[in-house]
């Protein structure tokens, strides 16, 4: 018992009410499944392959699948990443100006997520271009929202 300072006293107290990872998940009324999300992913792919990046970004940043499991989120992420990387640099600012504040916040989430996965890191330059233009348009507000939000993409 020499290392008594490291004893986890909460483990001995069932009433301790210690915060678990489960407690931090926001309350969702409905958990979206991979099947339910498929049509949206298809639509996103077809929009971005037809070159209508602006509409594709709008679609991607509206009602993102916050409640889905990690695998479903990853599928959606790949579709968003394709859209993000197909843009011409010159168009970025105009697309961003067409987004409302909520959509900008969601976009920041996808940019950070993109930079955190290997597929996104291969396209790091374009993600950073998005990021730079976004901070010029919207300032730090969407980043502050992203940092404090428990609804993750």
């Amino acid at each position: 018992m020499s290392d008594w300072r490291r004893i986890d006293i909460d483990a001995f107290d069932p009433e301790s009410g210690r915060l678990t990872a489960q407690d931090l998940i926001p309350p969702y009324s409905h958990v979206i499944t991979a099947q339910e999300l498929q049509p949206k992913i298809q639509q996103l792919r077809s929009l971005s392959s037809s070159g209508d990046i602006s509409s594709a970004i709008k679609l991607a940043t509206n009602d993102p699948p916050y409640s889905a499991d990690d695998a479903t989120k990853a599928q959606y992420m790949m579709a968003v990443l394709e859209t993000l990387t197909q843009v011409r640099q010159a168009d970025i600012t105009n697309i961003l100006k067409g987004l409302n504040p909520q959509e900008q916040v969601v976009l920041v989430k996808y940019l950070y997520k993109g930079m955190s996965i290997t597929e996104g890191q291969k396209q790091g330059g374009i993600l950073l271009a998005w990021f730079e233009k976004l901070t010029q348009v919207a300032g730090v507000t969407p980043i502050v929202h992203y940092l404090s939000d428990r609804q993750t993409v």
Partner: peptide
């Protein structure tokens, strides 16, 4: 006020109005 930089006003019916900090800081 919350750490995402918003000011929120809640009424008894659950109606919520929200406004962002102009410079983004909470």
């Amino acid at each position: 006020v919350a750490h995402d930089g918003t000011l929120n006003i809640l009424d008894s019916q659950g109606g919520l109005q929200s406004v962002n900090s102009p410079d983004g800081l909470p």
